[in-house]
Simulated scan of single mutants.
Amino acid sequence: MAKECKVLFIHGIGDGKADFAEAAWKILSDKHKAMTGKALAPSAKVPVRYNDLFEDFRKAPKDGLQEVRPFIQDAAVLEALQDLQGSGSFAYTHILDVLLWRFHTYARNAVIERVASTIEPFLPGVIQGTTNLVLVAHSLGTAVLTESIHLLAADGRLAGCWLPAVHMLANVAKVLEGPLIPAYRPPSPSRCRPPLATADSDAALLHYFTYRNLYDPVPMVDRFRPDWREAVYHETTLRSWGPKGVVNPHDLATYVQAPEVYMKLLRSMTLDFTAFSKEREIQEIQNATQAQGAPTPTEAKLREILTALIAQYGEKASPAAFVKLLQALVIAKIL
């Protein structure tokens, strides 16, 4: 009997709209139909939202930082935020999401439990072999999913089963890791990982996929790069600007439109290793590269901006650097 596929999408920074996964799902469904003649079942898509839990905290108070200031211990982070005074709700939505997640224990725990509780009802099907559960997280959602899977494993709610795979797009699980649970070794108490050895019983999943867009500076800050076994850890680097002329290298749909991503996702979702073979993936990448052509003037300018941002803020393991980067991206209208 074929397994029922369920794809849980965990949204990223400031992106908790009810339809946040629609563009990505359409790309996947269109690609699936082009290769198999059939569209994906709409019932397979399960958006997982947690953004509403931040709503009360993300309302900018009069002095701009009143509600979040007591929870921030890093003076450099506060300093980095000073220029955001009066800069508008969009900046506050994105920046405060990160701050509340990183420094506000109550908000963080509520988000973790929300996502863990959303995953939990699908676990019996995974255990019984009737459900193919695919977890897809983007941006801030990668840190959220990391903590949520760890909670499920630590609480015994996984009941000894291994999740088939997680797909982390624009992975920030390292820079936004919890104060008590490092994202990976050394040392690594986090259970959100594939087996580090063949007898590793603490691992919560079988395969870990992570994707980094070279033109997306967000996952460059304290990059996620554990020393895990290649057989179970799959790291992919891609180059993509955005779907149909939209220039946004950090967007969820931008990641999913890349053949390096949608082929692996469809392989996980369908378990069809013929239609979505690695050989077909290579061909899709070649076709996309040939069709890409020369960058437009806008793309060329953004490439220049992104290169400078990466040089200035990339590879720095600091919440303050991350906030400064987000601030710069908002000003440059990349986020």
Score class of each variant (00 low, 15 high):
residue 1 M to E: 15
residue 8 L to Q: 05
residue 8 L to R: 03
residue 11 H to R: 08
residue 13 I to F: 10
residue 13 I to K: 03
residue 13 I to A: 01
residue 14 G to W: 00
residue 17 K to F: 06
residue 18 A to W: 11
residue 20 F to Y: 02
residue 20 F to C: 05
residue 25 W to I: 02
residue 26 K to E: 14
residue 32 H to K: 05
residue 33 K to Q: 13
residue 37 G to A: 02
residue 42 P to A: 09
residue 43 S to C: 12
residue 43 S to F: 12
residue 44 A to R: 10
residue 44 A to N: 04
residue 47 P to S: 07
residue 47 P to Q: 10
residue 49 R to E: 11
residue 51 N to G: 11
residue 52 D to P: 00
residue 57 F to G: 05
residue 59 K to Q: 13
residue 61 P to G: 09
residue 61 P to V: 07
residue 62 K to N: 06
residue 71 F to T: 00
residue 72 I to M: 08
residue 75 A to T: 13
residue 78 L to K: 04
residue 80 A to Q: 09
residue 80 A to Y: 01
residue 82 Q to G: 14
residue 85 Q to R: 12
residue 87 S to P: 08
residue 88 G to M: 01
residue 91 A to Q: 03
residue 91 A to I: 07
residue 92 Y to S: 12
residue 99 L to R: 04
residue 102 R to F: 10
residue 102 R to N: 11
residue 110 A to C: 14
residue 110 A to Y: 03
residue 114 R to K: 15
residue 115 V to C: 07
residue 118 T to R: 13
residue 120 E to M: 11
residue 126 V to Y: 07
residue 127 I to L: 12
residue 128 Q to R: 15
residue 145 L to N: 02
residue 148 S to R: 02
residue 149 I to V: 12
residue 151 L to C: 01
residue 157 R to G: 10
residue 159 A to Y: 03
residue 161 C to E: 00
residue 169 L to Y: 04
residue 174 K to D: 01
residue 177 E to R: 13
residue 179 P to I: 12
residue 179 P to G: 14
residue 183 A to I: 05
residue 187 P to D: 09
residue 188 S to C: 14
residue 189 P to E: 13
residue 189 P to Q: 09
residue 193 R to A: 12
residue 194 P to K: 04
residue 194 P to G: 14
residue 195 P to S: 04
residue 197 A to P: 00
residue 206 L to F: 04
residue 207 H to A: 06
residue 208 Y to S: 00
residue 211 Y to D: 02
residue 211 Y to F: 15
residue 212 R to T: 07
residue 217 P to W: 03
residue 218 V to W: 02
residue 221 V to H: 04
residue 223 R to C: 11
residue 223 R to Q: 08
residue 226 P to V: 04
residue 230 E to N: 12
residue 242 G to R: 08
residue 247 V to I: 15
residue 257 Q to M: 15
residue 257 Q to N: 09
residue 258 A to C: 11
residue 259 P to Q: 01
residue 259 P to A: 03
residue 263 M to I: 05
residue 268 S to C: 08
residue 268 S to W: 06
residue 272 D to F: 11
residue 277 S to A: 06
residue 281 E to G: 00
residue 282 I to H: 13
residue 284 E to M: 10
residue 286 Q to T: 15
residue 286 Q to D: 13
residue 287 N to L: 15
residue 288 A to N: 04
residue 291 A to D: 08
residue 296 T to W: 08
residue 296 T to A: 05
residue 298 T to L: 15
residue 302 L to M: 15
residue 305 I to Y: 01
residue 309 L to T: 10
residue 311 A to K: 12
residue 313 Y to A: 03
residue 314 G to C: 05
residue 319 P to I: 04
residue 320 A to S: 11
residue 321 A to S: 14
residue 321 A to F: 10
residue 323 V to C: 05
residue 324 K to L: 00
residue 325 L to W: 01
residue 326 L to D: 05
residue 327 Q to E: 10
residue 331 I to R: 06
residue 334 I to Y: 03
